[in-house]
Design a protein around this nucleic acid. Structure first.
Length: 879
RNA sequence: GGGCGCAUAGCUCAGCGGUAGAGCGCUGCUCUUACAAAGCAGAUGUCGGCGGUUCGAAUCCGUCUGUGCCCACCA
């Protein structure tokens, strides 16, 4: 730090200001700050408080590993919202917790076991579940560690886990209620089966992708009764129990009702007529395998066809014969080969790309499978969920996403909730020796005795997370927390889990809580992408561990970068360069505040009366209040990118660059004006740091407590717009900036070094800038004109004239070029404005403000032309 | 097959009816009461193509092209 030895007595470093290093070192302050916040209980929520509640639940991360940038992004937004509300005096609850993530976690632990050469069956159900709990302990610890690094202001004492006792009780309660209301039932259907995970999965967990398949045409029957069918799944033909054609299809009408021979099996199967068949597709005839295709299952039901299962849970052929024991894909080519040998293949198989379902957890090709499963009847629940949004009880932000929501809830199929897994909430149904079925509620005794056993299936993981907004508060108990914090204020989550999670919460919340929706607003954010807009993925190698960047640049930098990219519902690209930029911003805040404190910036005492302030002071206070209002409006609209940008530009450009620079002259001048400015600067920093705090909590905490000597900005008041505005001061400073910029431009064009002092005469008469002469001279490095001053360049700007003595060293050619260009631009502008104002249609139809604006532009252009022409003619002839 | 969205400066994106913007990058000059992770100054765009509406279109409408996402029981 440089020492200034020429301090006037009434300015100089504030002796009480602690020494701050010249660079902000996030790594040193962040950890301790966070722990202090937690120790002081700032993030805890009191259900007994009489403050208005503000509740957001964390979208519970899966306990499958660690958090990625997407989590960091989401947490930044939620943390910013809750920190602001806390400062505004709400009783804030940011509910933390994690999701047991049934299938995902089971898979992870199974992979761990596989490394030891074991399978879950080697351990048995109980030991395996024990093992998963061990995993949860490790992984969960890692996740909360990351959340602490990020600065998440969550109520740690309330942390929940979907497999906790209380939440399990909530699951059992709602299951029982749905069961009793006949909204849960058990039925045999075709479901999506993962032959690797060995469980059913719901429609939504299916990932479709275009796979290259082969369409083969097979001759069924013979002679007059021959029908050619086309299929991509030849192996299932062993289970065919019919061939279907369209009822109106003249080609096959004569065969409907007859039986034809099914190759390779010696069986005869009927030909049926069904509307489902598209006569235009392929040959217009379809093989029907009710046990292994959802459409065929329906056709089978309509025509009372038998279901013949030919593949087991692993996707292996179970039919006795040459194909027994073959995997489904081996069987496919074997069967095609056998058919070809029999001359049953009509045309050579041809490549065919079609959409095939894969397991969203392990990418295995799914197998439609007929089996007994548990279902939620969604129709009444989905209707309530749709209505709540339709009638405006719940708002979706951004609104464009509503359509997606409706498309989905309005067409919702029943939800398959049973999973053949071990990790999850076991379905609370007992089967008796005589086929009895008893659903056991949390307060019921499970049936005991010979032959009774509990259902082995567990529930879909989204079943429990659907209860999250109230199960975390202690429901089904009538707790004070439920009373206080339900419904939640807003849900912040990604559009990618709108269907998985949000809709489930809506259905269960409305159902369990007597029609009160779980939240009033759904704020959807986008996905984090890399700096080129590409999806982040480990396999592509562009995935980033947020901890790496936090270590390098600080949590604030990561947070600010993410917030700055957060346009509602839109994906967020992020690159390391941008995090660096944010780190630079944090450092800038640091140094500006440090400098201000060295110059005595203070928050002590009342603000001086407006009459004692300079225009510069009034200008920045005017802008400060406008910024408070702007940021507030943007927060209320979840416009994180725009509010971050507004803060960035206000802080950096207006406060740190212009106001601090202009104040330097005042501080050097000392006396009363310096005191006034020091107080105003203190005020501006105080408010700006508070405004910035929700997004960049760590730097602002360090600086704000140092500046104000108060306990913590976490519990400081959120700034209020004092409504102070000063349009005259804003105009004045705008003119001042124009003068300074114009002369700097000239100096730069002339190749003058920034520090080089130049003798100058200022004529500020006719402007309101007289009071700023000192600042102008300081910022422009202009010396007083002494004897022998020669005005070699005269710059008229904003009504003022700045005459410089460059002692003949002026590059007139550069200036002439420059001015000529400016003149052309001004003339073009003038012509445009004149054209408009000469247009009667324009004058008749355009709004007054627009016409006025054009008039102003015309006047400005005329003034520019006059000024530039004067300057041009004052230049000596070239030579 | 249906639906939604996007195409604006080298990159990533704002703007969405009245003079083209930001961040990063780029060029030049600089240690100047803090900050070189900085300061100052500067360059860069027929706002995807073609039509239309309008006094006026990046902005509204149509269409074409490219591109992304979601949904769907396309044998």
């Amino acid at each position: 730090m440089t020492e200034n030895t020429q301090q006037s007595p009434d300015r100089g470093p504030n002796d009480s200001a602690p020494e701050l290093p010249t660079q902000y070192a996030p790594a040193e302050v962040e950890g301790p700050l966070y722990e202090r916040w937690v120790e002081r209980g700032y993030f805890e929520a009191d259900a007994k408080s009489d403050k208005e509640p503000y509740t957001i639940v964390i979208p519970p991360p899966n306990v499958t590993g660690s958090l990625h940038l997407g989590h960091a992004f989401e947490h930044t937004l939620i943390d910013a919202l809750t920190r602001r509300k806390r400062m505004q005096g709400y009783e804030v609850l940011w509910q933390p917790g994690m999701d047991h993530a049934g299938i995902a976690t089971q898979n992870v632990v199974e992979r761990e076991l596989a490394k030891e050469g074991k399978s879950r069956h080697d351990l048995g159900r109980e030991a395996f579940i024990e093992r998963v709990w061990q995993w949860k302990a490790e992984s969960g610890g890692q996740i909360s560690g990351q959340m602490r690094r990020l600065g998440d202001g969550v109520a740690w004492s309330r942390e929940r886990f979907t497999m906790d006792e209380g939440l399990s009780k909530a699951v059992q309660t709602i299951f029982k209620k749905l069961y009793d209301d006949e909204l849960i039932y058990r039925a045999e259907r075709i479901i999506n089966w993962c032959p690797r995970c060995l469980t059913a999965i719901s429609d939504i967990e299916v990932e479709y992708q275009d796979d290259d398949g082969e369409l083969v045409s097979i001759r069924y029957g013979s002679g007059d009764s021959e029908i050619v069918v086309a299929t991509t799944r030849a192996e299932t033909m062993l289970g065919d129990t019919a061939v279907a054609v369209h009822p109106e299809d003249e080609r096959y009408k004569h065969l409907v009702g007859t039986e034809i021979e099914l190759p390779l099996t010696g069986r005869r199967i009927p030909v049926v007529a069904d509307e489902h068949v598209d006569p235009e597709f392929g040959t217009g005839a379809v093989k029907v395998t009710p046990a292994h295709d959802p459409n065929d299952f329906e056709i089978g039901r309509r025509h009372d066809l038998p279901s013949l299962t030919v593949l087991d849970e692993h996707g292996v052929i179970t039919v006795h014969g040459p194909f027994l024991g073959l995997d489904r894909f081996e069987a496919r080519s074997a069967i095609v080969g056998a058919l070809r040998a029999e001359g049953r293949i009509v045309a050579e198989k041809r490549p065919y790309t079609h959409s095939v379902g894969h397991c969203s957890r392990c990418k295995t090709t799914l197998e439609p499978r007929q089996s007994m499963q548990w279902w939620v009847k969604t129709a009444p629940l989905a209707k309530a969920a749709a209505d709540a949004v339709r009638d405006g009880q719940v708002k979706i932000h951004p609104q464009e996403m509503e359509k997606r929501y409706f498309d989905w809830v309005d067409n919702l199929h029943d939800w398959c909730i049973s999973r053949q897994l071990w990790w999850g909430h076991r379905i609370p149904v007992w089967y008796g020796p005589d086929g009895e079925m008893v659903c056991v509620g949390p307060d019921d005794e499970a049936p005991t005795g010979e032959g009774w056993h509990q259902e082995t299936d567990v529930l879909d993981t989204w079943f429990s997370s659907g209860l999250w907004p109230f199960s975390t508060l202690g429901w089904p108990e009538k707790t004070e927390s439920v009373e206080k914090f339900y419904p939640n204020s807003v849900l912040v989550t990604g559009y990618d889990i709108l269907f998985f999670w949000v809709v489930r919460m809506m259905m269960f919340g409305l159902y369990a809580m007597d029609g009160t929706p779980p939240f009033h607003t759904i704020a959807l954010h986008g996905m984090v992408r890399d700096q080129f807009g590409k999806k982040m993925s480990k396999s592509f190698g562009n995935a980033v561990n947020p901890l790496d960047w936090m270590d390098k640049y600080g949590s604030d930098a990561v947070r600010f970068t993410l917030a700055r990219g957060a346009n509602p519902g839109v994906d967020v690209p992020i690159g390391e360069d941008w995090v660096q930029g944010s780190r630079n911003f944090a450092n800038k805040i640091w140094n500006a505040t440090r400098f201000a404190m060295m110059n005595g910036a203070t928050v002590e005492g009342d603000l001086p009366p407006v009459e004692e302030m300079s225009a510069t002071d009034r200008w920045i206070l005017s802008r400060l209040n406008a910024t408070v209002a702007e940021v507030d409006a943007l927060y209320d609209d979840y416009q994180f990118a725009k509010l971050s940008d507004a803060l960035f530009h206000f802080a950096w450009d207006e406060v740190f660059d212009w106001y601090v620079e202009l104040s330097k002259t005042t501080f050097m001048g000392g006396g009363e004006p310096a005191k006034v400015s020091a107080r105003v600067l203190g005020e501006v920093l105080d408010v700006t740091l508070r405004l910035l705090h929700p997004v960049v909590p760590f730097v602002t905490e360090t600086l704000w407590t140092t500046l104000t000597g108060k306990e913590s900005v976490v519990v400081a008041d959120w700034p209020k717009d004092s409504a102070f505005r000063d349009a005259a001061a804003e105009d004045e400073i705008r003119n001042l900036q124009q003068v300074i910029t114009e002369v700097r431009r000239f100096r730069s064009d002339q190749g003058l070094q920034p520090g080089q002092r130049v003798p100058a005469k200022l004529d500020l008469s006719g402007t309101s800038l007289a009071a700023h002469e000192g600042a102008i001279r300081q910022l422009l490095r202009l010396q007083p004109a002494e004897e022998g001053f020669q005005a070699t360049a005269t710059l008229p700007v904003a009504g003022a004239t700045v005459a410089l003595d460059l002692s003949g060293a002026i590059d007139f050619e550069a200036e002439r070029k420059r001015l000529t260009k400016d003149l052309a631009a001004a003339e073009k502008e003038l012509a445009q404005a004149k054209g408009k104002l000469g247009n009667e249609a324009f004058l008749a139809k355009a709004p007054d403000q627009v016409v006025e604006k054009i008039r102003t532009r015309l006047a400005a252009a005329e003034a520019d032309i006059e000024r530039i022409t004067a300057q041009l003619s004052s230049l000596p002839q070239s030579g």
